[in-house]
Structure formats: structure tokens, C-alpha cells
Design a protein around this nucleic acid. Sequence first.
DNA 1: TTTAGTGCAAAGGATTTGCAGCTAG
DNA 2: CTAGCTGCAAATCCTTTGCACTAAA
Lengths: 150, 150
Amino acid sequence: MQVTAPRDPESLARMLRSRGLRMTPQRGRILEAVADLGHATPEAVAESVRASCDPAPSLSTVYRTLETLEELGVLSHTHLDHGPPSYHLAAHADHIHLVCVECGAVQEDSMDVVEPLAQRMRERHGFVVDPRHLTMHGLCARCAAEEAQA
Amino acid sequence: MQVTAPRDPESLARMLRSRGLRMTPQRGRILEAVADLGHATPEAVAESVRASCDPAPSLSTVYRTLETLEELGVLSHTHLDHGPPSYHLAAHADHIHLVCVECGAVQEDSMDVVEPLAQRMRERHGFVVDPRHLTMHGLCARCAAEEAQA
DNA sequence: TTTAGTGCAAAGGATTTGCAGCTAG
DNA sequence: CTAGCTGCAAATCCTTTGCACTAAA
């Protein structure tokens, strides 16, 4: 649950090697792409990387790399809606998501707001909430207003 | 967001007809299965129903029916993990989920615990949280303990 | 009778996997 | 050198769709 997210290739290389893994240009570019995009599905990462480099990483490499980087604690992901997951830098995972089930709009709010709730879960169940993965569904202001009229 | 969940075929039939839809044995059995199972993926519902009736509803019918019943407000679903969604009676959706990212265990807690947080989102963003869909990820007591040792 | 609902099979999208060749260390 | 990594294509898994047939109302 520690947040050690290197954006630079150097420290990524170090993290990988310390686990017997290898640094490759593909991994560097994929990390870069996620950092640039902020939030991105595997498909979006692939497209972004495809555009910027010649021997474009294959889609499977993107999937495998995202998984590896998540295990390293560099990346994190959320399920914003029914579709593919969204990846982001673990260091940038300082917020929660509010997803409108009506129009799909996504808002963010500070992670801190979950603290009281997380605290309570810890006390009652010993469950340690990872607020980086928290997504709340509901109606955004606009859709709630529309619904109220009908 | 209203919770009117008939477990009995009678009221289901009424709800369906009032919208120009039809009551069928398949729909009755699928609702029954979800009620019995508590939480169930489409696949699990299909299997359960398959066992208990002769002209077993096809998987596509299960999917279509779950969708229909959800539109009616009878059912509701959550994404507990990466896999298929989990359906349950809307009336039984009075709790939130705590999913362990390590071992996959699922615990429940009262929906009420989210109220303060929901209130805050409403004030700050006008966002109306639907606490029935809330799932928090993290480590269950056991896995948290194991992690602490390492 | 009318038309929603069903089964089946085929299509679709997202993700994983097997394997041979490539390359970081 | 010697594994770990990659690309490619095939395989899986989950879900949706098209269509002819069945059955509620």
C-alpha cells in the first residue's frame, strides 16, 4: 500500500532490477504514457504509445506491463464504469472518483474525505480500506436535477 | 432510486404488465434464483436455474432478464472484483461491500455508514451518491495481518 | 391475433496465453 | 550466455445480437 511512484526511467529500472526484472524501452514508454494521460485504459495507453514510438509495444505487452507495474506499486487502477479499467500513477492516486451512472461523467474529490469511513471499517472489521481504489456511483448534479423534474 | 422489490411472482407480474412487458416462467425463476443466492453473477444464476427447471432459460435470457429486472428497480448489481457483476434484490441492497484485493473475500456492512460521506458529496458537488453500489477495496483483517509481518 | 420473449448460434470486445525469437544484464 | 521480455496469433471469457419460433395477453 506504499506509494513509491517513479516517473523517471532511472528509478523504474532500479525497482525492476531489485526484483530480478528487466528494464526495457517498452516499459519506460508505457509508464510515461500513463503518467502523461493521467487516467488511461490499456487500449488508450497502447494507442498513445503507438503514436510516439516506432517499434510500438503490442497490446499484450501493454497488458503485461500494466500488471507488472501495478505489482511493483508504481501504478494503480480503478473501475470507473462497466468498461475497461483505468490506470494511473500510484503517486497520483490521491483522489476518489464520483461516476454518474446516467451520463458517465467522472468527478474527483480528495481522498481524505474517506478517512472517517475507512477508520470505522478498520475498527469494526479490521478491514484496511485502500482509498485509492474508491469509486462512488450515483447521479451528477445535472442528471440529479433532471431526474427531480420527472 | 426507489426500492420496490417483489420477491413474489404476483407483484412482479403486475410491475411488468404495467409497463407493457410480460410475465414468463423464466423471469419468475430468475428472480427466485437471485433472491435465493443473495449475490450472484449471471453465470451463477443460469446454473442455479438450470438445475431447478426443465426448459432451462438460456444464458442470453438470463442476461436480458437481469437487465430488465434492474430497469424495473427490482434488482441491482455491483462489481465486486474484476470479473462479472454480482446481482441482488434491490430490497436486499441495504449494505456496502468490502472486497479484499488479496484473497477476494467479501464482507458487508450497513449502508448507513456511508451517509456522512454521501452528504458531503451532495454539498460539495451536488452529486447524489447511490450507496447501494458502493464497494471498497483493501485488505481484510487476515491479509492485513500477514502483510504486516512481511 | 399481436408482438414481447425465447433459444440458439454467431458476433463482439476485452484480456490472456503459447510459443519462437530477441535482448537486457 | 541465460533467462526475462516481446510480438504475434490463437484461445478464452463475458456479453450482446440477429433471427426464426413460441407464447403471453
